[in-house]
Simulated scan of single mutants.
Amino acid sequence: MTDLFAATTDAQPSREQLGEGAVLLRNCVGHDEAALLADLRAIIKAAPFRHLVTPGGHTMSVAMTNCGRVGWVSDSSGYRYDPVDPDSGQTWPSMPPSLRSLAARAAAEGGYKGFTPDACLINRYKPGAKLSLHQDKDELDLGAPIVSVSLGLPATFLFGGLTRNVAQRRYRLTHGDVVVWGGPSRLAYHGVAPLPAGEHAVMGAQRINLTFRKTR
């Protein structure tokens, strides 16, 4: 990660409804940014990014790591949450207060008070990387929302319905934006279009996405 810090805007978050139970919060990171990025660097140092392989043998273009009680992993045996980092054999780094409080605050703003995530998936997008349309359904607790934080380069977020053939709407996510979805939209199909090239003042030539989940 680029070791740069830039002043954040003082603009207040704005809210955009994406669907029933789903909301986009603009500029939601704000003054927590410095602590969040410092903690994020420490997590990545302890558990470096890697490109996971899907059960079908496809190497994901998005690199990822995790923090929290469990981490999301994928290999030939399937998708799952695991308390142990398969690369190091150690438990995942703990979720620091800066990340946990951001997730809880955004969830509350989105209508989901009391959100206590136990996993944070940290995805790194380089130009050209994408995330295919999918549902987040490996969690036992589907009553809790998904909280997704965007850092770095702008990306196009695709948000659809409960079946794959429902047309997706496209939203431009910028640094500090957070998407929260749950309730009737909890199993909505979503994805990220290929990331365009660029250079962000804070994060450099990449996008980092933090996805907070309650797995049980």
Rank of each mutant, 00 (worst) to 15 (best):
I44A: 11
G161I: 10
M60T: 07
T163Y: 04
A205Y: 04
L187T: 02
P194T: 06
D141R: 12
R15Y: 04
N66Q: 11
H58W: 09
L99I: 04
Y125C: 05
H51K: 11
G183K: 06
T156K: 14
R186E: 00
A7P: 08
G198F: 00
P86M: 09
G191A: 06
V84Q: 10
R213K: 12
M1N: 11
T59W: 06
G182L: 06
S132T: 15
L24D: 01
V179A: 14
H58V: 11
D10W: 09
P154Y: 01
I146V: 15
A38T: 14
E33P: 02
L37N: 10
P145H: 13
G198M: 03
G128H: 09
P96S: 11
A144T: 11
L37V: 13
G57M: 03
A107S: 02
V70M: 10
G161Q: 08
A47F: 03
Q206M: 09
I43F: 09
T59D: 03
S98P: 03
G110D: 00
L121T: 09
G21P: 01
S98E: 02
T211I: 09
H31T: 15
A34T: 12
P97S: 13
G114D: 05
G114A: 05
M64G: 14
S61T: 15
T59S: 11
G56D: 14
S148L: 13
V166G: 10
A46T: 12
H134A: 04
A46R: 14
D32W: 09
L133T: 15
G160N: 08
S101R: 13
G204N: 03
Y125K: 01
A11G: 12
D87C: 12
L210M: 08
G182A: 03
H175W: 09
